[in-house]
Design a protein around this nucleic acid. Structure first.
Lengths: 127, 127
DNA sequence: TTATCAATGATAATGGCTATCATTCTGATG
DNA sequence: CATCAGAATGATAGCCATTATCATTGATAA
């Protein structure tokens, strides 16, 4: 079904190798540094294809999308607005409450997007 | 402190008059329909100024910002991905859990962004 | 081998939003 | 009331992430 070309395999490997939350241009730069000549449009298309097949996942942060490993467990994100550090978290209570809210409002829930903004302890310690 | 010009007053009134979640271009169109000649840049600047002074509030939905009345109580949004209807909700449990998550991760929380996606009952009934 | 169809790359286009800059408005002061 | 400074405005160019276009390349099946 999915055509996992060499380019896409390289993109997938890079994402799978770390816990990083990649943005498209950043990933393109990393690929270039490693000697791969992959056009920016191909990177965007590859990311979309990989995500469409569940091999990676993404979330929207401000005006741009971030791509990460597809992990089994759903999780949300916590971002430090000072240094940009992103942490992941899982909270079953929040998940359950969201289902309740949707049910109360007569919505059939299909997904959600939760990002918590804050200042991380490293940044706080610097002051 | 804030210069509440006529233009900004008109923008503010329009937003205050309804529960609508306006996007900038949509609001500009509505103003034009009502006979106001307000440049698009002025609309954007006015929205930013009104928000900066707490007279309206906003949230990011996908690639664009939505503006709404500044309500006393914090709330989040539920959006129907089929018809675009937006509902608001308040859930204290979710708020509390977010504080806990941030504390656990050593973050000093400054805000969050929660949008639940789903299909609303009106759309479901149409099938 | 050939036909087919997707992937690719270069680049133009899109769309929301911001910057620029000349002009206009406002309101504080004399 | 006149003047002046700083802010607001409008027209429009620019920015930037992403997508569309289209000619070319590559892979797979017959």
């Amino acid at each position: 079904m999915i055509k996992l070309t060499q380019h896409r395999q390289v993109i997938l490997n890079l994402i799978n190798e770390s816990n990083h939350h990649w943005e498209a241009e950043e990933l393109a730069r990393a690929l270039a540094e490693r000697g791969y000549r992959i056009g920016i449009a191909t990177v965007y298309r590859g990311l979309a294809a990989l995500e469409a097949h569940g091999l990676i996942s993404s979330f929207q942060l401000a005006d741009r999308k971030r791509y990460e490993r597809a992990s089994k467990a759903h999780h949300d994100h916590l971002i430090c607005t000072r240094c940009g550090r992103i942490e992941e978290f899982v909270n079953e209570d929040i998940e359950r409450e969201q289902d309740l809210v949707a049910a109360q409002k007569g919505f059939s829930i299909t997904g959600h997007q939760l990002v918590i903004f804050g200042i991380c302890n490293r940044c706080i310690d610097k002051n």
